[in-house]
Design a protein around this nucleic acid. Structure first.
Length: 602
RNA sequence: GGGGUGGUAGUUAAGUCGGUUAUAACGCCGGCCUGUCACGCCGGAGGCCGCGGGUUCGAGUCCCGUCCACCCCGCCA
């Protein structure tokens, strides 16, 4: 039987004691963070738990027994102590939340011993990620990680409170589902009871939440795990979490209002500041024209100006070639930028947009405007004064400004101008890190041409409602049809995406037709959904937000692995458990599975 | 599937042009220390240089392959 545990309850956590608690008898339990031994006079032990850290003082004068036991303590030993809170007076530590006091220990019990940890448990662990992942339980013991998961919990709690209060019902949907082609690669799960058949792990609850609308649930939400067998990235993991919701009898604006209320409540909970609603709305084509991307970072200006028409036939070989080939010319005005970019700086910008992974642009043209308003640099000579004047007016050039111009195929010009805008903003320090700029991007194209498939594919999914006024384009110019599809963008990140769904069988048939999908094919893939939609489906729409990315933004971290308690590596392995693993022949036999090419025996 | 960076003590890193016994800091172990707070001082132990092959009199260092981690592109309806 222990000396403390089981006899006394914890009186408080290690982050809560202040000078006002002086004289209190307290019981603390936690882990040894540091031990500083001053010899026979005594020793200081810093005790840590979820709440913070408290300095303990052990001396033979207070308790010879506790002092003796304390001398054998090591980092990460788990202990319980009792003692009296003492004001540190002259010796306060202003860098510690509990630095006003220390606890003079009268009793100490070692609850369990720790081996020397492979890396120090502190905010800066000074260890590489593989090691931290292997011993994730120690990594998570660090204060920095504990803070991130408190944020994550605050988010889910605010989401549940807000949505429940607004009439949303939480419903769980299956994870083991029928494989439906299209979209992300699915994980497959073999069926023991049905030889040769497989479940798929749900990549999203999309179809089920629509069926819940048919079922009359009206307002549904779920904080749900999704699975996609695609290559991971810094902000992507095979297993991730969505805040998923769907509503019946609603327009886009009504979806926006609910999401805004939810997001505002989340931000208020985590940051104590409620963002202004409604959020800005911007059409997709507007976003592409002004920012060259469907997820613009609105914390800074540097908007794009399309000058294709102004430079067509200008006599400048580079621009003429691009405009004649149906390409695009985009310009950016960098206010006062003439003096901020040296020749070397311009070279670096050029190389940046030329990189294949950035934009693959052919080059970067520019001009600096001198104090008299005259152009200097590569664009000064080839463009006539008239063309220069037209551009200056369109872009709003002033003396001292830098003009950046990219000319290329439209997608490349957009990408390059977007990359340029962000790079220049970063270099000139134009990004206000403390701002949260939310924006709805609306009117996405319904369909987009896929080079790989050599046909039109849905840009969102095949159940997305076209804008009613564009319906007749479905048969004549399908690529011009706009959709009732939308993304919520925050500081250059897509944090949610959704759409109004098709509830009319005739419209659905026309969209499938435009996608080149036959009735039979559609029936084979989504037959159960089409069946359901024969029984009076309500107009409905919804959205899904990425919880992991929201947490990353609110916790200010760069890697998705930081916001998942037990994440996988970029190679989709779990370094702690060793998953995935080979399994025994017996297990395989039971599942009616044969491994044809086993790398472990190759 | 493609490209890039990295892998040396428990940890983080250095290691020059291929050449003696592979360094340092932190951590760890032993001792000392009456107010520390990244405590300090003295001493000590600790190495499959990711793995496999090759070149060479000689490889941490050069070459080939491979594994792992991270980043990017494709991919993620």
């Amino acid at each position: 039987m222990g000396a403390i545990f089981g006899k006394h309850s914890r009186s408080c956590d290690c982050g809560s004691l202040r000078a006002g608690d002086s004289g209190r008898e307290v019981t603390l339990m936690g882990w040894v963070s540091r031990r500083r031994d001053l010899g026979k006079a005594g020793q200081f032990v810093v005790l840590r738990d979820r709440g913070g850290e408290t300095q303990l003082f052990l001396s033979p004068e207070v308790s010879a027994e506790a002092f003796e036991l304390g001398s054998g303590l090591h980092a990460e030993d788990c202990v319980a102590v009792r003692g009296r809170v003492q004001d540190r007076g002259e010796n306060r530590n202003p860098h510690m939340a509990t630095g006003e006091i220390e606890v003079h220990v009268t009793e100490l019990e070692v609850l369990s011993r720790s081996e020397t940890p492979p890396f120090p448990v502190r905010d800066d662990p000074g260890a590489g990620e593989p090691l931290r992942l292997k011993h994730r339980y120690l990594d998570l013991r660090r204060g920095a990680m504990q803070r991130i998961f408190r944020v994550r919990s605050q988010i889910t709690s605010a989401v549940r409170q807000t949505l429940s209060a607004r009439g949303f019902q939480e419903v769980e949907t299956p994870m083991l589902i029928k494989y439906t082609p299209g979209g992300a690669r699915n994980f497959l799960v073999p069926s023991r009871l049905h030889e040769g058949r497989f479940f798929a792990l749900a990549e999203s609850p999309q179809i089920f939440k629509q069926l819940l609308m048919v079922a009359g649930f009206d307002r549904y939400f779920q904080i749900v795990r999704c699975f996609r067998d695609e290559n991971p990235r810094q902000d992507r993991q095979a297993e991730f979490t969505q805040i998923d919701l769907e509503m019946s009898f609603v327009t886009e604006e009504e979806v926006f209002a609910e999401v805004e209320a939810m997001v505002a409540s989340v931000w208020e909970t985590v940051t104590n500041e409620r963002p202004e609603t409604p959020f800005l709305r911007m059409t997709w084509s507007d976003a592409m024209a002004r920012y060259g991307t469907d997820k613009p970072d609105l914390r800074f200006g540097l908007e794009h100006v399309t000058i294709t028409k102004l430079v067509a036939g200008s006599g400048f070989r580079v621009f003429d070639a691009v405009t004649e080939a149906g390409g695009m010319v985009k310009a950016l005005r960098v206010e006062g930028g003439a003096a901020r970019f040296s020749r070397k700086g311009m070279d670096e910008l050029t190389r940046h947009v030329q990189k294949e992974e950035v934009a693959g642009a052919k080059g970067l043209a520019f001009a600096k405007v001198d104090p008299e308003g005259a152009w200097k640099g590569p664009l000064a000579k080839p463009l006539s004064p008239e063309v220069q004047a037209r551009i200056s007016e369109a872009v709003g050039l002033q003396p001292g400004d830098l003009l950046l111009v990219v000319a290329d195929r439209a997608p490349v010009a957009h990408r390059a101008a977007d990359a340029l805008r962000r790079e220049v903003a970063a270099r000139l320090g134009l990004v206000d890190e403390d701002r949260w700029c939310f924006c709805w991007i609306t009117d996405f194209p319904l369909l987009q041409w896929s080079e790989e498939a050599q046909r039109l594919t849905p840009s969102h999914h095949p159940f997305t409602m076209p804008r009613p006024e564009d319906l007749d384009l479905l048969e004549t110019a399908p690529e011009r049809v706009r959709a009732l599809a939308y993304d919520l963008v925050l500081n250059g990140n897509e944090i949610a995406g959704g759409s109004i769904r098709i509830h009319d069988a005739a419209v659905q048939a026309r969209v499938l037709e435009a996608l080149g999908m036959s009735e039979e094919e559609a029936r084979a893939k989504f037959g159960f959904l089409m069946d359901a939609f024969r029984y009076g489906p309500p107009p409905h729409g919804g959205i899904a937000a990425g919880l992991d990315r929201l947490t990353m933004l609110l916790a200010g971290t760069e890697s998705i692995r930081d916001v998942i308690a037990f994440p996988k590596t970029i190679n989709a392995q779990d370094l702690m458990t060793g998953a995935p693993d080979p399994v025994s022949p017996d297990q395989l036999r039971e599942l009616h599975i044969q491994v044809s090419d086993d790398p472990t025996t190759r």
